[in-house]
Computed example of a mutant assay.
Amino acid sequence: MEGFVLLQVLQNRFYSRFRHMGHQQVKIFISPNIDLETKAKMDVVCGGLSKQEPATPEIQKICDKIKWQVEKKTGNKFPTYTAEFYRMQVVAGTNYYIKVYVGLEDHLHLKVFEELPCNGGQLELTSLQENIYHHAPIEPF
């Protein structure tokens, strides 16, 4: 029942932003990598970015799953690899913009795309930025 209540909260937030469009029914796709409580706390706007939030264990799991892609793209091995902050963008799937601490005051910004579950739900590193300072905000790239 708790999952239903959280989903209803999320649906109400989404509907309140788009009710002027006259839609009677709102469908929301929930990522298997993010729990319902995290989704319900997000300020979700389809196509828009959420506000920057501290990374959750679920965001760290996403980072861990694509770490090999990050290391391949940068040509570096990262013994320290900790998600610190993130933003989300709901599109035909989900874009995650994640700030990752990689040691020695250095950070990466990752853009990770997660397909909808009906399309396989795969994670893909679509872009990254290197040599990011800790206080640099996460912006779309």
Rank of each mutant, 00 (worst) to 15 (best):
residue 1 M to K: 11
residue 2 E to V: 14
residue 4 F to Y: 10
residue 6 L to F: 12
residue 6 L to C: 05
residue 6 L to K: 09
residue 6 L to G: 02
residue 8 Q to K: 07
residue 9 V to P: 00
residue 9 V to M: 04
residue 10 L to D: 04
residue 10 L to P: 00
residue 13 R to I: 06
residue 14 F to N: 09
residue 14 F to L: 15
residue 14 F to Q: 09
residue 14 F to R: 14
residue 15 Y to D: 09
residue 16 S to K: 11
residue 18 F to D: 09
residue 19 R to P: 02
residue 20 H to P: 00
residue 21 M to T: 14
residue 21 M to W: 09
residue 23 H to Y: 14
residue 23 H to F: 15
residue 24 Q to F: 05
residue 24 Q to A: 12
residue 24 Q to S: 10
residue 30 I to D: 04
residue 32 P to D: 08
residue 33 N to Q: 12
residue 34 I to F: 15
residue 39 K to N: 09
residue 40 A to Q: 05
residue 41 K to C: 12
residue 42 M to E: 11
residue 45 V to G: 12
residue 46 C to G: 09
residue 46 C to Q: 11
residue 48 G to N: 11
residue 49 L to N: 13
residue 49 L to M: 15
residue 49 L to T: 13
residue 49 L to A: 13
residue 50 S to H: 05
residue 50 S to G: 07
residue 50 S to P: 05
residue 51 K to W: 08
residue 52 Q to N: 10
residue 52 Q to G: 12
residue 52 Q to P: 06
residue 53 E to L: 15
residue 55 A to V: 14
residue 56 T to W: 11
residue 57 P to T: 14
residue 58 E to L: 07
residue 59 I to H: 06
residue 59 I to W: 07
residue 63 C to W: 05
residue 64 D to G: 15
residue 66 I to M: 11
residue 67 K to L: 12
residue 67 K to R: 15
residue 67 K to T: 11
residue 68 W to F: 14
residue 68 W to T: 09
residue 69 Q to Y: 07
residue 70 V to Q: 05
residue 70 V to Y: 04
residue 72 K to N: 11
residue 75 G to I: 07
residue 76 N to V: 12
residue 76 N to Y: 14
residue 76 N to R: 15
residue 77 K to D: 07
residue 78 F to N: 01
residue 78 F to M: 02
residue 78 F to P: 01
residue 78 F to R: 02
residue 79 P to M: 08
residue 83 A to N: 04
residue 83 A to F: 07
residue 84 E to R: 12
residue 86 Y to G: 06
residue 87 R to Q: 10
residue 88 M to S: 10
residue 89 Q to A: 06
residue 92 A to D: 13
residue 92 A to W: 03
residue 93 G to Q: 03
residue 94 T to F: 06
residue 94 T to L: 09
residue 95 N to G: 03
residue 96 Y to D: 04
residue 97 Y to D: 05
residue 100 V to Y: 01
residue 105 E to V: 02
residue 106 D to V: 03
residue 106 D to E: 12
residue 107 H to G: 02
residue 108 L to K: 00
residue 108 L to R: 01
residue 109 H to S: 04
residue 110 L to P: 01
residue 111 K to I: 08
residue 111 K to R: 14
residue 111 K to V: 10
residue 112 V to W: 03
residue 112 V to A: 05
residue 113 F to K: 01
residue 113 F to T: 01
residue 114 E to G: 00
residue 114 E to N: 00
residue 115 E to G: 04
residue 117 P to M: 10
residue 118 C to Y: 05
residue 119 N to L: 08
residue 119 N to M: 08
residue 119 N to C: 09
residue 120 G to W: 02
residue 121 G to H: 02
residue 122 Q to V: 07
residue 124 E to F: 09
residue 125 L to M: 06
residue 126 T to A: 07
residue 127 S to Y: 10
residue 129 Q to R: 15
residue 130 E to V: 12
residue 132 I to D: 00
residue 132 I to F: 01
residue 133 Y to F: 11
residue 134 H to C: 12
residue 135 H to P: 01
residue 135 H to D: 14
residue 136 A to S: 09
residue 137 P to W: 03
residue 137 P to F: 03
residue 138 I to N: 00
residue 138 I to S: 01
residue 139 E to R: 05
residue 139 E to N: 04
residue 140 P to V: 03
